[in-house]
């Protein structure tokens, strides 16, 4: 009896070892985007779909979906062409998960990286996204503490080499405080000041229309000229402004404004509610002079699936299809692929 038990134990140990190996291999090949889904899958890596049916229906769906995602990621990684994007997480950032999800949906691999991670590792990525949130509780001014962090020097260096950097909301505030947009002078040329809004002072959130003003940059190349999209805004300090009239002229002359607030027909109306924060010239997003760094105040990652758009009443399948916000990330992918091709040819 004891012998039998011993054999049984040995068998189960061997079985467990097999599980460990398999899950490790999966983890190695799978995308590094650590979503709740992939977490669930790594706990039960070798369960069959039949076994999973014994669990609760919600969990079954999630685990099956996660396993399918991992399989797809392994396939894509094996192709060896996966573009790697670092979504930088600062203390107080809170949009990193949804941002990483859209990066993945756009066909790239997203990894959420802590601000104090090894900077050498950070240089390996093909592009960077600074997501929204309240880094350092917006202490002193929104984005200013992160702008003085050494990690931003690394990102700035990589941007100078041509890698794309996208700052969304708090990420945009960080890029502006760092002077990475419009970056036509060494000094900080623009600011994101507290909103001026007739209804509320401080934080304001709503859905707004944006018009594409520049479709030549790294994040807007897949948009049609003057295309209009609906996206949410959610901020207290999002009013683009400058005290330097020369910079205003430069933004216009060099076509550095990527998006402007407008009405549903694309008409630029410099009043609330079309312009939600009092930004000068209705500016919602600004490029740097090279066109590879974009500071955007609205949240395109919250308008990347049709089901996220207000007034959508389609089927679940239709809801899962792409919406305009995702084009920013798809344009980023297109830009990196182009950059890589050019580097290869050179």
């Amino acid at each position: 009896m004891a012998k039998q038990n011993k054999n049984k134990n040995k068998k189960s140990q061997a079985k467990n070892k097999g599980h460990e190996k398999k899950s490790h291999a999966q983890a190695k090949h799978s995308s590094s985007f650590k979503s709740a889904q992939s977490g669930a899958s790594s706990k039960q890596p070798s369960h069959t779909k039949k076994q999973l049916l014994q669990n609760s229906p919600m969990k079954q769906k999630e685990v099956i979906k996660a396993q399918d995602n991992i399989k797809n990621n392994i396939k894509n990684n094996l192709k060896g062409s996966r573009i790697r994007i670092a979504v930088i997480w600062f203390p107080g950032t809170n949009c990193e998960e949804e941002t990483a999800r859209v990066v993945e949906a756009a066909g790239m691999s997203a990894e959420i990286i802590r601000w104090n991670s090894d900077t050498a590792r950070l240089r390996d990525f093909d592009g960077y996204v600074l997501p929204g949130g309240w880094s350092y509780e917006d202490r002193i001014r929104a984005g200013v503490i992160v702008a003085k962090d050494p990690v931003l020097d690394v990102i700035k260096n990589e941007a100078d080499k041509g890698k794309p950097v996208l700052g969304i909301c708090n990420g945009a505030q960080i890029l502006v405080e760092k002077g990475m947009v419009p970056a036509t002078k060494p000094d900080n040329e623009i600011a994101l000041a507290p909103n001026v809004n007739p209804l509320v002072s401080g934080y304001y959130c709503s859905w707004v229309y944006l018009k594409v003003e520049n479709n030549k940059g790294a994040f807007t190349s897949l948009f049609k000229p003057n295309e209009v999209m609906l996206v949410p805004v959610a901020h207290g300090e999002g009013r683009f402004m400058t005290s330097d009239s020369e910079v205003k002229e430069k933004l216009r002359r060099e076509n550095l404004v990527a998006f402007k607030y407008c009405d549903e027909n694309g008409k630029i109306l410099e009043k609330y509610p079309y312009n939600p924060n009092g930004s000068f010239a209705n500016i919602a997003a600004v490029y740097n002079a090279k066109g590879n760094v974009l500071a955007i105040m609205p949240h395109p990652e919250r308008a990347a699936w049709k089901k996220q758009i207000p007034g959508f009443y389609g089927t679940s399948k239709e809801g899962d299809s792409s919406s305009a916000g995702r084009k920013i990330f798809e344009s980023m992918k297109f830009y990196i692929e182009k950059m890589k091709k050019e580097a290869k040819n050179a």
Binding site: I140, R141, V144, K148, E177, N188, I190, A191, A193, P194, M241, T242, S243, D244
Partner: peptide
Amino acid sequence: KLLYNKHY
């Protein structure tokens, strides 16, 4: 350097 933003 840190405490105020000259633009506003």
